[in-house]
Structure formats: structure tokens, C-alpha cells
Simulated scan of single mutants.
Amino acid sequence: MTRNAATLAGFGAVVLWSTLALFTTLSGEVPPLQLLAMCFAIGGMLGLVAGVSRRGWRAVRDAGRQPWPVWVLGVGGLFGYHLLYVLALRAAPPVQASLIAYLWPLLIVLFASLSTGDGLRAHHLAGAFLGFAGAALIVTGGRGVALSADHAAGYALALVAAVVWAGYSVLSRRVASVPTDVVTGFCLAAAVLSAVAHLALERTVAPQGVEWLAILGLGVGPLGLAFFLWDIGVKRGDLPVLGAASYAAPLLSTLVLVAAGQAQATWALGLACLLITGGAALAARDMLRRQAAA
């Protein structure tokens, strides 16, 4: 797979993540950790079926033979990020916590320059900052936000969540030889850990009617296939471009909510669209040139 194709695969994960808000809204009152346990289980089981159908039980053996640092990285990334984000939303106002957590695309751009040979150029950084400005407009609705010392623990959790996901994404490049099928094991392990955390922190709520379809949609898409596509992108694609382009997730998510009648179109959304699109195009300048040359 070429670098450009892998980058596009990674962006496919971003597109799937844009459905996260809509499906989560439709999942009703199911607590977040319970929802994660169910969705990780669905994504993991689908990955298992797909892996065994393509490669037989070698797909399972490959996962079992991976050294423990690979498992720490994969399970820590998937489960660690989501657990920290849920805890951050419990300890701080959602707007501020979400804005801090959405530093991860910018951190990917920065970390990639330190740990890979991709190199960090001015247009990568400028594109990432434009994307963050656009994401900030979407999260805040164009209104300023104030950080309160009373919620410092929640802000810290959100920042650590951003570091964890960015670290997982960039360090995955170091284990590029690990088959993407192993993400199946990460999802199943994350499902078990999410279930344990749910039983310790939440009350179980049985989904009703259409909520089951929303949970299935989450498990198949943004909390399932997306992780496999992201694995391909971060291992073989252009990390700075992926980082900047990831800011399209809150924009696409908001557009999906507007189309579904769950949100209103505003001036802030229009400006955010320009900032995020412009930032992604700026960061992807080298990739677009490679495509044009090809």
C-alpha cells in the first residue's frame, strides 16, 4: 500500500468518527463505559470474523505471539484514551474538557516530528493550528470559555487523554510490522476492561428499541472499523497530514447532526469549515504535490 493510500485509509477513520456523536445521541441513557464495553466487543468480534475468514486461525495466533509492549500500547491507547475522556467529562464541564481533549491532532503533528523521519514543516504546524481553531469554534459555538481551578482535575484528565491518543498513534509507527488484525485483540481486551470499569463506576441500563441499532452502528463504525483504518494510516501514512486532517472529525460530526436535525447551522460552523478545510489542505500540500506528480 502506498503512503498516500494509507493516509486516505486513516482519514477514513476520521470520517467514521464523525458519526460518533449522532449514534451516541441515539443510544439513549446507556452509560458511557457500558456503551464502550458493548461497542468494543462488537468491533472486536467483527474483526475476529474478518481476520479468521481471510487468514484462518493464523490471525489469532499472530495476536497471541505479540510481545507485551505491543499489547500495552494497543490496549492502553484504545481503552486508556476513552476511559480518561469519560472521567474528564465527569470532572469538568463538557465544552472545556472536549476542547482540551481535542489537542490530540495537534500533538500528533508535533510528536511525529520528534519520533519519526517525516519531519515537521511550517505548513504542517500552521495547518494543525488552523484545524484546532476550527475545532474550538465548533466545540464552543463561537463563545469564549473560561477555565476554572475548581475543575483542574478534569482538565488534567482531558490533557492526558489527548497525550495518550497522540502517543498511541505516533508510537504505532514503531511497530509497523505488527499486522492490523491484532487490533482485534486490542478491541476485545478494551471491551473487558471497559466492562470492569462500568461495573465499578456505573449502573447498568438495558438499551431499548432503536438504541440497539445505534450501539450496533457504533460498534461497526466509529468504535470498530475506524480503529483498523487508523492503524493502517498511522503505520504507513503521512502522520502530520493525518494529524491536521483529523480536525475534520468535529466538523463532519456537526454537519451530520445538522443533517439529522439534531443541531443548528451557525456562523461559527461556517467559519470552522473554512478553517479546518484550509488547515487540512495546507498540511497536505506535500501529499497533494506527490499525487499530482504521479
Rank of each mutant, 00 (worst) to 15 (best):
L213V: 14
T204M: 09
L201G: 05
G224F: 12
E202W: 08
A214M: 02
V192Y: 07
A191L: 11
P222V: 09
V210R: 11
L201C: 06
L218D: 05
L201Y: 07
V220P: 07
V192C: 12
E211M: 00
L225I: 13
Q208E: 15
A206Q: 09
A214R: 01
G209D: 15
V192L: 15
V220L: 05
T204Q: 12
V220S: 02
V205N: 03
A189G: 08
L218A: 00
A195M: 06
L213N: 08
V210A: 05
L216I: 05
G219F: 06
I215T: 11
L201I: 13
L218V: 00
A195N: 08
P207K: 00
E202S: 04
A197N: 08
V192F: 14
G224P: 10
I215L: 15
L201K: 02
G209T: 07
V192A: 14
H198A: 15
A190V: 08
W212Y: 15
G221N: 07
P222G: 03
E211R: 00
L218K: 00
L218H: 00
R203Q: 15
T204P: 08
L193A: 09
L218F: 00
I215V: 15
L199E: 09
L213R: 05
A190S: 15
A206H: 09
V192T: 14
G217S: 09
L213M: 11
E211I: 04
T204D: 06
A206I: 15
